[in-house]
Structure formats: C-alpha cells, structure tokens
Computed example of a mutant assay.
Amino acid sequence: MSTRFVLIQPSHAGNVGAAARALKVMGFDDLVLVQPRWDDVLTRAETIERASGAVDVLQKARAVDSLDDALQGMTHVCATVMTARDFGPPTTTPREHLATVADRAERVAFLFGSERYGMRNEDVYRCHAALRIPVSPAYGSLNLASAIQVVAYEWRLALGGFEVPPPVAPAAADAAAVAGMLRHWEQALVEVGFLDPAAPRKLMPRLQQLFNRAQPTPEEIHILRGIAKSMSDMAKRAKA
C-alpha cells in the first residue's frame, strides 16, 4: 500500500513542518508540495522547528510544479473539503470512505488545499472522493496540519492501525520482602496502640492476605516500611 499526502500551494512554512510531524506519528512519509509559497520551504527554520523531529520526512518530501506531477502513479485520489460540491465526487467522512478502499486501493493520495482558499473545484472534480471531517457546525475551521493529522489517523485506522504492546506489569516483591514489611508493620501497630500483642486476633494474617492480593512491588514495600517507621517514630516521641 502506497500513500501520498499532497499539499496544494501551502503558504505557511510552519504548517509544512507540522504536516511532516503528523505523517510521521502515523507511519507515513510521502509528502509532496504543489507550488509552495517558499522555494526553500522544506529547509526553512520554522519548518524544521515545527516538524519536531520529523526531519526525515522533510528530507524525503519534494516540491513540484503541478498537481499532475504530484499525482503520478496514484490510483485513488481523495480531496479534503469543508463543504460538499454540487458537482463532482461524493462527499463522505474519512472513516466511512476509507474503510471501503483500504483493501482494494494500491496507491492512495490525499489532497489538501491552501490555507486561505481550500481546494479549487477543478482539483476536487478529478478526485474519486471528497472527504469532509465531521466538525462542529458552529466552528468548522481546521488548521491544515490538524486536518492532515485527522485524515492520517483515519487512514492508519482503516489499514489496521499499529499494534499496541500490552502494558508491562511491574515485578511483585518476593515473599521474604513482604514478610519483612509485615513484621515491621506489626511492630509499628503495637507501638501506636492499634494492635494488642496479648490479643492479636487475626489482624496480621488478614494483612498478609491483603498484601498477597495486592502483590506490592519492591518500591511499594519501601514506601510501606517508611510509613511503619514514621508511625514508630511518632509513638516514641509521644511517650518521651
């Protein structure tokens, strides 16, 4: 699957850098600019700063003179629009449309218009679909890089997403550490008057079961010992 993101006449260097960053976090790196405002936009300081580490995407990106050049080799082209056109490709949400093409389109291009004017009708008409991000009717103005991030995310989702590794469970403290901590607590509980050693009932076995279920880590055992020490110190000061 080949994916290309095409920015038509981008006018802000920062948006180009932010676009590179948006693509990289979603695993894409094919960025093409059509007639950018700045000839050196890919190497400008603001672009690199906003790319925030996605310099490799900028280094691979290229600027071309026409949309025809940008779309060479692409077999499925999606426009991005704020409003549906009366004529042209059907307008749908990214999620709805991309789910239908992820398994059959081999080379997909996403087109984004200029920051000031959006996409021209003639550019929209040559696309297979027009994607409209569902936004608030009261305020639907999306920054260019934000729109790219949303579409890149939806496309990655349609392609199956990235596998999220399961969380790594912290290692539990061993039985000896738990037993030592419980002895420390037993001493502290006696000193503060909570535990009567003459009539302990089943307090300590119950605490043993509680910590067995909790499976505290070595760091947590250290904290619990610190609490026990503080209780003992307070009891000693109170008796002084």
Rank of each mutant, 00 (worst) to 15 (best):
F211L: 15
G14Q: 10
R107T: 00
R116F: 06
R156W: 11
A51F: 08
S232I: 00
I8H: 15
L33I: 02
A130M: 03
E220V: 04
R156L: 08
Q72H: 14
L31R: 12
G161Y: 04
V55Y: 14
D86F: 07
R132E: 03
W155E: 00
G193C: 04
A173N: 07
S11W: 12
W155G: 06
R62Y: 01
L203T: 08
D174I: 00
F28K: 15
S114Y: 10
P90T: 05
A171G: 10
I221Y: 06
M181I: 00
P200S: 13
L195W: 05
P134Y: 12
N15V: 06
H222C: 11
R225A: 07
K24S: 14
A214I: 09
E154W: 03
Q215D: 12
L31V: 01
S230C: 10
V41L: 02
T91P: 10
N121T: 03
F28C: 02
V6R: 13
V25Y: 13
T83F: 13
Q209E: 12
R44W: 07
D40C: 02
L203F: 10
H97W: 09
V168T: 12
L7V: 00
H222P: 05
A130V: 00
A130G: 04
P134T: 04
A99R: 15
D39T: 10
D65W: 03
D69Q: 15
N121G: 04
P218I: 03
A102G: 02
W155H: 15
A109I: 00
F87T: 14
W155S: 01
F112M: 00
A176D: 06
R44G: 07
I133A: 10
Q187V: 06
D69M: 11
P36Q: 02
A102C: 03
A105K: 06
V108A: 09
T100I: 02
P197A: 09
H97F: 04
P166L: 08
K239H: 12
V168G: 08
T43L: 08
E220L: 04
D40M: 01
S11C: 13
D123W: 10
A240Y: 14
A235T: 01
R206E: 08
C78A: 13
V135N: 13
Y117P: 00
Q187I: 02
K229F: 10
V55K: 15
Q72Y: 08
T93M: 02
R225F: 08
A84P: 03
V101W: 09
E186C: 01
A13V: 01
E46Q: 13
V164I: 11
L31G: 11
A188Y: 04
V150E: 01
V6M: 07
T92E: 03
R104S: 07
P10L: 07
R50C: 06
T43W: 12
M74K: 14
S146P: 01
A171K: 15
E191P: 00
A188D: 02
P170Y: 04
A109C: 05
F110A: 05
K24D: 06
R132W: 02
H184N: 14
L159F: 01
G17S: 04
W38P: 00
D196F: 04
Y117H: 13
A61Y: 09
G193W: 10
F112P: 04
V178Q: 12
A51T: 00
G27K: 14
M119N: 11
V34F: 09
P167R: 14
V150K: 11
V16D: 07
L182Y: 06
